[in-house]
Simulated scan of single mutants.
Amino acid sequence: MHYPVHIGGATALGLQGYAHYLSLGDKSTVWLYGAKIPNWLEKLPLNADLRTRNVSLFSDPELGVDDARRNPDETASTLPWDWKLVMSSPERAVFEALDELPDQESFHTLDMTFESLTTLRPRTLSALLSSCKKIKVKRLFFVFADRHDHAWRKRLDPKDFDLGSGDRALVKGGKIHPRYRIMVPDEFARKERGHGA
C-alpha cells in the first residue's frame, strides 16, 4: 500500500536471528517504524501486538533500513506474494531496541542479544551513532558494546560522537556508569575489561 513503514527494534533483531529468547504466550510484539503509519493498522484483529514508533531517532530516517524495494537484489525476507519485507538492519535495530529501555525492553534481554551481535558493521554503526539524536541511546550502546567487547567495538571511538555532558538518570535505584555517566542497573555499572575500563 506504499506506506513508508518498516519492521524494527527487537522484531527485526529476532527475524534476523539475533533473538535470545522466544516469546511466550498467544501474542508476540511487532515493532513498526514509520513517518506516516495509518491509524487503522493498530486496530486490525491480529495475533500480534503492534507497537508503532516514528522515525525521529535518527536525523537520517532511512539510514540502516534495508529496503528491498530500492534494492531488489538484496537478500531480504520474501513474503508469499513476492513483496519484500522492509526492516531495520541489525545495526539500526539495536539502536531502536535500546531506545525502548527500560519501559518496553529489559536490560537482561538486550544484554543477551548484544552477546550474539558479533558481526555488526563498524561503518554502519559509526553512521548510525552520528545520526542518532538521543544521548541516552548512544551512551547505552557503548555501555553494552564495552561489556561484550566484540571485534567491531575496537573500530569505534566514543570521542568521535556527541555523547552529551552531565549525568543521565534512566533507572531508579541504579548506579551511574563510571565512563558513560548514565544510571543503569548495578551489574551494568561495574567496570568491565576492555574498552569500558
Score class of each variant (00 low, 15 high):
V5S: 03
H6K: 06
H6Q: 10
G8W: 03
G9T: 01
G9A: 10
T11H: 00
L13S: 00
Q16W: 00
Q16S: 00
G17C: 02
Y18L: 05
A19Q: 13
S23I: 00
G25P: 13
S28V: 10
S28R: 12
T29R: 14
T29M: 06
V30T: 09
W31M: 09
L32I: 13
L32C: 08
Y33S: 10
Y33P: 13
Y33K: 12
Y33H: 14
K36W: 03
I37P: 11
N39I: 08
W40F: 15
E42H: 08
N47S: 09
A48I: 01
D49M: 10
L50H: 07
R51H: 14
T52P: 07
N54K: 14
L63E: 08
D66Q: 11
D67C: 13
A68W: 14
R69V: 14
R69Y: 15
R70E: 12
N71E: 07
D73W: 07
T75H: 05
S77F: 12
T78K: 13
P80Y: 15
W81P: 01
W81C: 05
K84D: 05
P90I: 01
F95K: 05
L98Q: 06
E100D: 11
L101P: 08
L101Y: 08
P102G: 02
D103E: 10
E105Q: 15
F107Y: 09
F107Q: 02
H108Y: 13
H108W: 08
T109E: 11
T109M: 05
L110S: 03
L110A: 05
D111K: 10
M112S: 15
M112W: 13
T113K: 03
T113V: 15
F114L: 06
E115Q: 11
E115K: 14
T119Q: 12
L120R: 02
R121T: 10
R121Y: 04
R121D: 14
P122H: 09
R123V: 00
L129M: 04
S130E: 13
S131L: 04
S131Q: 07
C132R: 07
K133E: 11
I135G: 01
K136M: 02
V137P: 14
K138G: 05
K138I: 03
K138S: 07
R139E: 09
L140Y: 11
F141M: 08
F142Q: 14
F142W: 14
F142D: 14
V143N: 12
D146F: 12
R147D: 11
R147Y: 13
H148E: 02
H150P: 15
W152G: 02
K154P: 00
L156F: 00
L156A: 03
D157Y: 14
K159S: 15
S165P: 00
G166Q: 10
A169Y: 03
L170H: 02
L170S: 01
K172T: 08
K172R: 15
K175M: 12
K175H: 11
H177D: 14
H177M: 08
P178Q: 11
Y180S: 08
R181G: 01
I182Q: 12
D186G: 06
D186C: 04
F188P: 08
F188G: 05
A189D: 09
A189Q: 12
R190T: 13
K191G: 06
E192A: 09
E192F: 04
